[in-house]
């Protein structure tokens, strides 16, 4: 280091430069490296899903019952028919965006807000809803019931 030559520079001044430069360099490098190291630590949740989400485990639902799960940023409805078939649909009513529910007495999907009815395929069959509910694809992967948006829709 050229600073070893003290003939012209006062010692206190030399120390100041050393502290500023050395301390600053070390501190700044730490402030760059620390976030990167933290960044490399994988977070506890592996991902945010996207167009595919695990709605529940096999066996969580009894036949002729349903559950609401989060799909992207909207609620969706997973229902297990009395015949043991899984169906997944958007749970947002096409009328005024209330959350719909499965009525196991009617075997239909019902919106409580204005008495809208959809059949199990999401078709609007009675009441105000102007359009059918969006239908998602359900796959079984091991023990997971996986719901995904239909391709090309």
């Amino acid at each position: 280091m050229p600073t070893n030559d003290t003939s012209r520079v006062k010692p206190e001044r030399r120390r100041l430069v050393e502290i500023l430069l050395g301390g600053g360099l070390i501190a700044s490098v730490i402030s760059f490296v620390y976030p990167i190291l933290r960044y490399l630590v994988p977070p506890p949740v592996a991902d945010l899903g996207g167009d595919e989400v695990v709605a529940c485990k096999k066996g969580d639902l009894k036949p002729n019952s349903s559950k609401i799960f989060r799909f992207g940023n909207r609620p969706a409805l997973l229902l297990l028919t009395a015949e043991g078939e899984y169906r997944a649909l958007s749970a947002t009513c096409t009328h005024l965006s209330c959350t719909v529910q499965y009525r196991n007495d009617l075997h239909q999907i019902w919106c409580a807000c204005h008495n809208g009815l959809y059949d199990m395929n999401g078709r609007n069959v009675a009441g105000p809803p102007p359009r059918p509910l969006e239908v998602f694809q359900v796959n079984l992967r091991g023990d997971d019931v996986v719901v995904r948006r239909k391709q090309g829709a």
Partner: peptide, 27 residues
């Protein structure tokens, strides 16, 4: 390390970087 280049996941993976990954927002 975290980005996923598909229409189904790209947005969510960036959102993931921004919210879940430590200092992901910074990077």
């Amino acid at each position: 390390l975290y980005y996923r280049p598909s229409a189904g996941e790209a947005f969510e993976s960036v959102q993931y970087i921004m919210t879940r990954v430590q200092f992901g927002w910074l990077v």
